[in-house]
Write a protein that binds this DNA or RNA. Structure first.
Length: 439
RNA sequence: GCCCUGGUGGUGUAGGGGCUAUCAUGCGGGCCUGUCGAGCCCGCGACUCGGGUUCAAAUCCCGGCCAGGGCGCCA
């Protein structure tokens, strides 16, 4: 029994083994998920990326030496198995592999730090400490297969809509957008920061004449939050589009959400089933509720909310009970939105900003942007910031920038909506939160 | 950062001033030819750390660290 692949090549994944190839010789590679040694017959559950297949070794059908080799195998060892596909009503899934040859490619240290078969559940902290093992669980990897498909669908959709993918810097100089929530780093002899949003760069691309851009990239926030919905490093899906207003980009967003959900539903059947998740594809347009109305609804539910405040957690929950699917909150007060958000023409106290909510979770926020230099400077000052710190950014507004609008969508929060997991840490391979910086 | 609750074998738990510290899973050994949460027998393995109270602390008290839940923060 060799520990080297030599000339062996995988011919099938477990999910490709079915009754149609009964009698064929196949080579499978993966991990030993479980072993059931009944004495005269040994069952090995072989797990690969796409599923689990049973390898059945009856002592009567194989040589004594080979049978002894199989008996020595341990959990989570990496093996390659060459064998024939055998139709059997007694096998899970109706097929099993009768082995002819085996390679033990690597062994696993025992006992394992957590139970991959999930007979005994582990806590999230234990799981994240041994994340590479945790990710071997089919229910855990399913979340990432769905996230992958979601991001793929997002790209397909935005490309169809005429967006150009861009990459903007994550090492930035300015802490003036609100200082405390940026992570400071050493940049040679200077101080720099990790970018909290591609916002200003996206807008500069509007001045550059790219018309429609998107970026899917990490953003970093140094807030000390410690909740099931926040992380300090997440992947943001950001778009910005010229000659469009807030209504136009809301329309793009709702069609994107609906299209992505449909494509995930069509392409991730196995994963959704593993997660026991019934997806529904929402109709567009999504319902829009004005901020004024939100204040009334929240107060009518017995939760205090003053006009001009952002939604507290209690207010979000009250709204989540009132509106259970995807919906927009529009008409936000200008004062609680960033300086680059365009105030409303009719009533400058209100703005053209919107949030996309799923139940009580905010998954995206966007707006029509200020594209006039003077107004932008005025709003920067009004929010207590220094226009000089934005010099390089503001220059883009002095040489002809079109009216534009955009949004940012939290990819992890969107993944939570799709998969139904309630802890955002579940949606990141190696999450970064207040306490966790490893692995 | 605040409030509440907790930290017991590798994992998940029961217990709660003195007795061999409970159970499941796991791991090691044995039996077993259709398992699919396999079964049966034998064995192994634990009280978060520091200080205090006490004849005696895993248990009570104080503090640290960490976790779970809730909140705050989230231009």
């Amino acid at each position: 029994m060799s520990d080297s692949l030599e000339k062996w090549k995988r011919t099938h994944y477990s999910k490709e083994v079915n009754q149609d190839i009964n009698g064929e010789t196949v080579t499978l590679m993966g991990w030993i998920h479980e072993i059931r040694d009944l004495g005269g017959i040994i069952f090995i559950l072989l797990r690969d990326r796409d599923g689990i297949i049973q390898v059945t070794a009856p002592s009567k059908k194989i040589s004594t030496d080979f049978f002894k080799e199989i008996r020595k195998l341990k959990k989570e060892a990496v093996i390659a198995i060459k064998g024939s596909v055998q139709k059997s009503s007694k096998a899970p899934g109706g097929v099993e592999i009768i082995p002819d040859a085996l390679k033990l490619l690597n062994e696993a240290k025992l006992p394992l730090p957590l139970d991959i078969t999930e007979k005994v559940k582990a806590e999230i902290d234990t799981r994240l400490d041994a994340r590479f093992l945790d990710l071997r669980k089919p229910t855990v990897s399913a979340i990432f297969k769905i996230k992958s498909r979601m991001l793929h669908s997002v790209r397909l959709f935005l490309e169809r809509e005429g967006f150009i993918e861009v990459n903007t810097p994550k090492l930035v100089a300015s802490a003036t957008e609100g200082g405390t929530e940026l992570f400071p780093i050493t940049y040679f002899e200077r101080e720099a920061f990790l970018g909290q949003s591609p916002q200003l760069y996206k807008q500069m691309m509007m001045s550059a004449g790219f018309d429609k851009v998107y970026e899917i990239a990490p953003i970093f926030r140094a807030e000390e939050h410690d909740t099931l919905r926040h992380l300090n490093e997440v992947i943001s899906v950001d778009i910005e589009a010229s000659f469009l207003d807030h209504e136009d980009v809301m329309n793009i967003l709702e069609r994107l959400v609906s299209t992505v959900l449909e494509e995930v539903q069509d392409n991730c059947e196995t994963e959704l089933k593993l997660l026991e998740r019934d997806l529904f594809v929402p109709e567009t347009p999504f319902e829009r509720i004005d901020y004024d109305e939100v204040v009334d609804i929240v107060n009518s539910k017995g939760t205090l909310m003053r006009y001009g405040e952002d939604l507290s957690r209690a207010a979000e929950k009250a709204m989540g009970e009132f509106m259970d699917g995807y919906h927009f909150i529009t008409g936000w007060p200008s004062d609680i939105k960033p300086f680059y958000v365009m105030p409303s023409d009719e009533n400058p106290k209100k703005s053209y900003a919107f949030d996309l909510m799923y139940k009580d979770l905010e998954i995206s926020s966007g707006a029509r942007r200020v594209h006039k230099y003077d107004l932008l400077v005025e709003r920067i000052k009004k929010q207590g910031l220094n226009p000089e710190s934005f010099e390089r950014y503001l220059a883009a507004f002095e040489y002809g920038i079109p009216p534009h609008a955009g949004w940012g969508l939290g990819s992890e929060r969107f993944t939570m909506c799709i998969t139904g997991v309630n802890n955002i840490r579940e949606t990141v391979l190696f999450p970064r939160d207040r306490r966790r910086l490893t692995p």
